[in-house]
Simulated assay, not measured.
Amino acid sequence: MSVLTFRIYFAFAANLLAIVILCRGNCGLSKCITRYLLSMAVADLMVLIFEVILYEIKDSYFPYSFLNYTPVCSLNLTLLFVSLDCSVWLTVVFTFDRFIAICAQTLRAKYCTEKIAALAVAVVSFSSVLENSAVYLIYEPRDIIDKIPWSCSVKSSFYTLPIWATYLWLDTILTPLLPFVLIVLFNALTIRHIVLANRVRSVLRGGNNIGNDTDPEMANRKKSITLLISISGSFILLWVVIFVCFVTVQFTDTQFLKSDYNDPFTIAEQTGYMLRCLSSCTNTFIYAVSQSKFRNEMKTIIKRPLELFGHMKKEK
């Protein structure tokens, strides 16, 4: 088994584990937060399926399968971009939800509910499908073998026709430029509010920081900051390379998906895709580091098969 294959299996298993744990609902999180985190985990899993398994490694394991037919390849890439947009914008709406919960107490009871979270997930999913439905039309066959179109290549008209140029601009703004701005803005406002609230609470508790570690309210705020910044910060760091590539395409004659792997832009583009895939499997580790109950649930689920196997072995 290659290192790449092992990483793919590991990332896939990590997302499945996160989904199982969140579905059990024993992490001490509200139903609203659980709904967002579960939806993000599912979207990340879909990214791994469509980008890594069905697109990136198909040439290594299934070089002449139906997955390489141009219509199937185009559909897979369309679903890939739908999954990516879902993953990105679910991160944004989760960040906004935490901003409302922490900074706008008057709106918290109305907005931070499981019903609103389900509605937000549905709107993000529908909008992602609507936005990326045109992606299916931008690809053409890379080769035609025995009158069968193989693989996918971006049409040259995609970079010249005004309608496609406009679409590329809008797509770049919607993902990931606008999410970058919104995440940074909401995080900055949330952190500022928490810091100011902690200062006021510290003064009310005696004008010093003694005992803050045992203050449940301040402990919860610290956990909120840790979880929020970890998720959104990792997203920004892992998306920044591909974002620079998107902007470069807008202002230069450079094109996506070129086959010259000695070209510096192609190297940067492929690196950006790799980091973007990595962002789809980091949240599980973030939960494990920042949430003690999530760690306990993870240990329980991992130990259970081992205990069952040990019990069966003893019976034999």
Results as ranks from 00 to 15, higher is better:
residue 72 V to R: 00
residue 72 V to D: 00
residue 73 C to V: 08
residue 73 C to Y: 14
residue 73 C to G: 13
residue 73 C to F: 10
residue 77 L to S: 13
residue 79 L to D: 00
residue 80 L to K: 13
residue 81 F to H: 07
residue 81 F to L: 12
residue 82 V to M: 00
residue 82 V to R: 00
residue 82 V to H: 04
residue 83 S to G: 09
residue 84 L to Q: 07
residue 84 L to C: 11
residue 85 D to P: 05
residue 86 C to A: 02
residue 87 S to Y: 07
residue 87 S to E: 12
residue 88 V to T: 04
residue 89 W to V: 11
residue 89 W to R: 13
residue 90 L to N: 06
residue 90 L to I: 12
residue 92 V to Q: 06
residue 94 F to I: 01
residue 95 T to G: 09
residue 97 D to K: 10
residue 98 R to Y: 00
residue 99 F to I: 11
residue 100 I to E: 03
residue 100 I to D: 01
residue 101 A to L: 11
residue 101 A to N: 03
residue 102 I to M: 08
residue 103 C to E: 10
residue 103 C to S: 14
residue 104 A to H: 06
residue 106 T to Q: 12
residue 107 L to N: 07
residue 110 K to F: 13
residue 110 K to S: 15
residue 111 Y to T: 13
residue 113 T to I: 12
residue 113 T to Y: 10
residue 118 A to D: 14
residue 122 A to T: 09
residue 122 A to N: 10
residue 125 S to Q: 06
residue 127 S to C: 11
residue 127 S to G: 09
residue 128 S to D: 02
residue 128 S to R: 01
residue 129 V to K: 03
residue 129 V to T: 06
residue 130 L to P: 06
residue 131 E to F: 14
residue 132 N to W: 04
residue 133 S to I: 15
residue 134 A to T: 12
residue 140 E to R: 01
residue 143 D to T: 11
residue 146 D to K: 02
residue 147 K to M: 04
residue 147 K to D: 13
residue 148 I to R: 13
residue 149 P to F: 13
residue 153 S to R: 15
residue 154 V to T: 05
residue 155 K to L: 02
residue 156 S to H: 06
residue 157 S to E: 06
residue 159 Y to M: 11
residue 159 Y to V: 08
residue 160 T to I: 08
residue 160 T to R: 06
residue 161 L to C: 01
residue 161 L to R: 05
residue 163 I to F: 14
residue 163 I to D: 15
residue 164 W to M: 08
residue 165 A to I: 15
residue 167 Y to K: 03
residue 168 L to R: 09
residue 169 W to E: 14
residue 170 L to C: 07
residue 172 T to S: 00
residue 174 L to C: 14
residue 174 L to E: 02
residue 175 T to L: 05
residue 175 T to Y: 11
residue 176 P to G: 05
residue 182 L to I: 03
residue 182 L to R: 00
residue 182 L to Y: 00
residue 184 V to R: 02
residue 184 V to M: 08
residue 187 N to M: 02
residue 190 T to S: 08
residue 190 T to M: 06
residue 194 I to W: 05
residue 194 I to N: 05
residue 194 I to A: 03
